[in-house]
Structures are given as C-alpha cells and as structure tokens.
C-alpha cells in the first residue's frame, strides 16, 4: 500500500530515505527562498539534503514572496 505525505496540503507518495531535497525536486520547487517545516518543526536549509522525511509527514514548503 502506498504511504503518503502531505506537501503544502497536497498528497505525495512517500519514499524510503526521502529528504527535503527529494521533495523539492519532485514538486519542481526551484525557488530558493524557502522555509521548510516538517510536522511543525523548522528544518534549516543546511539540512535539506540529509533530513529524512518520516512516513505520513506533514511538510510545509513556504515560498517567500519575491518579484515586483
């Protein structure tokens, strides 16, 4: 059975050893000014490549405003 996580309230299939960088790639989130929280806990940018996403995690990838 597929295990899902939520990314900005959208379902995404969970994978073993999935990191935040994996999520950013899958979601095509190329913008750099991001704030990421996993289950409410802030994850620092330096940890995006090694923070392992738990099953059924609630991930918030907050894009800050730019442009204009």
């Amino acid at each position: 059975m597929k295990i899902l996580i939520k990314v900005n309230d959208n379902p995404l299939e969970w994978e073993k050893n999935m990191t935040i960088d994996t999520i950013l790639k899958k979601m095509k989130y190329s913008f750099k000014m991001l704030v990421v929280k996993v289950n409410g806990e802030l994850v620092k940018k330096s940890e995006f490549g090694n923070f392992i996403i738990p099953e059924e995690a609630d991930v918030k990838v907050i894009h800050l405003i730019s442009g204009g």
């Binding site: 900005n8 913008f31 894009h63 800050l64 405003i65 730019s66 442009g67």
Partner: peptide, 16 residues
C-alpha cells in the same frame, strides 16, 4: 501592476 501585492506563492503554492 504587482507593486501592491504579489501573493501567488502564498496562495497557489503554499496554501497559506
């Protein structure tokens, strides 16, 4: 003109 508000990420991407 977008100089008053640029809310696309907050709204469409972040669902905030």
């Amino acid at each position: 003109q977008h100089d008053e508000a640029w809310l696309i990420f907050m709204d469409m991407v972040n669902n905030q």
